[in-house]
Design a protein around this nucleic acid. Sequence first.
DNA 1: GTGTGACTAATAGTCCGTT
DNA 2: CAACGGACTATTAGTCACA
Lengths: 76, 76
Amino acid sequence: MTLRETFAANLRRYRKAVGLSQEELALRAQIDRTYVSSLERCQYAATLDVIEKLAAELGVDPVELLATPDIDKLST
Amino acid sequence: MTLRETFAANLRRYRKAVGLSQEELALRAQIDRTYVSSLERCQYAATLDVIEKLAAELGVDPVELLATPDIDKLST
DNA sequence: GTGTGACTAATAGTCCGTT
DNA sequence: CAACGGACTATTAGTCACA
């Protein structure tokens, strides 16, 4: 599991947890709609700047988006 | 404090903790010496790929390089 | 051993539309 | 609503000479 894969999975997981579409999240974070899609499909290695933006809109610490999810905490 | 600033500071801090010069770290991570210098001076928003490389050479979890340092833990 | 400017190559990131 | 493509621009990745 690479870091960008971990990030991709977490991004999708947190986005859904918050109940946002890729489109809405992108709009709020002021990044491109198709780019969020690309990130979740692990196409790019995101920079710290966009990670920071996305984390802010998801209401989580950027670190959470890179951490290996604790099995116990996963709800749905 | 932006995320890239946090990363820059942590990179330098952990590098010194491990007792490596920018030169040595760069050599081991197979990246350029001056590029490590640039990152520590916060010139770029690093991508997940290089963060992963550097963390590996420093022997820390990538998450550690992005976390806000716990005041209590700072030794020197 | 580190900081800096200049430079090229690669990729991050945008914007268009289609499936 | 999301995956995917192509063409495009902005920024990072990576190297070098020199202070």
